[in-house]
């Protein structure tokens, strides 16, 4: 089973390499290391978000509120920065992660304590968080000239030739890899998704595991809130509107099964990278950016077809709908 899972990431990596090669055939500049690194940098936020979404989807849940959480947290830190420029940026990042975690915990608590289906909860909080962003800001924008120098400069600061933004993504990948493969929480997340009934008998609190997964997705959404605002240097109510579907798309393309329990950090990261490469390649090969939506839609459908074939071979479910 592990070899099979490994296989899927290898295939995805091959697909990405093929994609880059095809583009490079016509436009060699695209495949230069420098350009590929900048594509990675552009995709960093999507990668970070996809990792959080993956944790939630693994527990048979879904978080539709991530983009709204990002907008709210981003607005909160931008306004804090505009009002109190003397607060160090590191503290603002901690604040962003705390606010994001709190919003994620709200989702998680509704799922855990009241047993409301995650899709309903996060459908509700999707609109509530974005509405709250409007209430918080009064509909006003926070512009570049209102933000402090340090606030804007941090994701652009280069360390070892890579911008901090890329390092954030790399750190998130490393942290999630350790979390998912080396900790009890990571194993519980897989167990709760692959077979909730067996997980309960194994002494895992499935509800609590879901709650913690939502806290994780909230935390990365909050972190991404700061990263997004400081990268695009504008905070408005419309930030990342509709982005929740790109995040889910990255997971699906990365082989994370919507039925829970199947998926990996490498897969989610590569899925995000795949979308990122398509997005940055279109202008290079002179295709109108209006094609992007249709292409990523086709990629999702193709990925689901391939996922379904891969999952069918395992024959893992015996007591599918025993009491969950």
């Amino acid at each position: 089973m592990k070899a099979l899972a490994k296989n899927r990431e290898t295939w995805l990596l091959a697909a990405i390499a093929l994609l880059v090669a095809v583009i490079a055939l016509r436009f060699p500049a695209f495949a230069r290391p420098g350009n590929l690194l900048s594509v990675f940098n552009d995709t960093s936020i999507l990668i970070i978000l996809a990792l959080g979404q993956m944790a939630v989807i693994l527990t048979r849940s879904i978080d539709l509120s991530m983009a709204s959480n990002l907008a709210f947290t981003g607005m909160a830190v931008a306004m804090t920065n505009a009002a109190y420029p003397e607060i160090p940026v590191v503290l603002l990042i901690v604040m962003a992660m705390a606010v994001g975690t709190a919003l994620g915990a709200l989702n998680g608590a509704l799922v855990w304590k009241l047993g409301i289906p995650p899709i309903v909860v996060t459908l509700g909080t999707l609109t509530i968080f974005r509405g709250a962003t409007f209430v918080l800001s009064g509909g006003a924008w926070v512009n570049a000239d209102q933000m402090s120098q340090g606030f804007i400069a941090l994701p652009r600061t280069a360390i070892l030739g890579l911008p901090m933004l890329s390092w954030f993504a790399i750190a998130a990948i490393a942290a999630f890899h350790l979390l998912m493969t080396r900790t009890a929480l990571g194993r519980s997340i897989y167990a709760a998704g692959i077979n909730p009934t067996a997980a309960v008998y194994a002494g895992i609190d499935v509800g609590r595991t879901k709650f913690l997964a939502f806290c994780l997705s909230g935390m990365v959404a909050g972190l991404s809130g700061y990263l997004w605002i400081s990268r695009y240097v504008i905070a408005s109510v419309e930030v990342a509107n509709g982005y929740e579907l790109s995040i889910i798309a990255a997971c699906v393309i990365g082989g994370v099964s919507i039925a829970g329990g199947i998926g990996s950090v490498a897969g989610a990261g590569l899925g995000a990278l795949f979308l990122g490469i398509i997005g940055s390649a279109l202008p290079v090969i002179n295709i109108s950016p209006f094609w992007q939506l249709a292409i990523s839609g086709s990629a999702i459908i193709l990925a689901v077809v391939l996922n379904a074939r891969g999952e069918r071979r395992q024959g893992r479910i015996i007591l599918r709908r025993a009491e969950a």
């Binding site: 992007q292 839609g297 999702i300 459908i301 689901v304």
Partner: peptide, 9 residues
């Protein structure tokens, strides 16, 4: 989710 992107795309 896929056809949603495809159709609007």
């Amino acid at each position: 989710i896929g056809t949603m992107s495809l159709f609007r795309g």
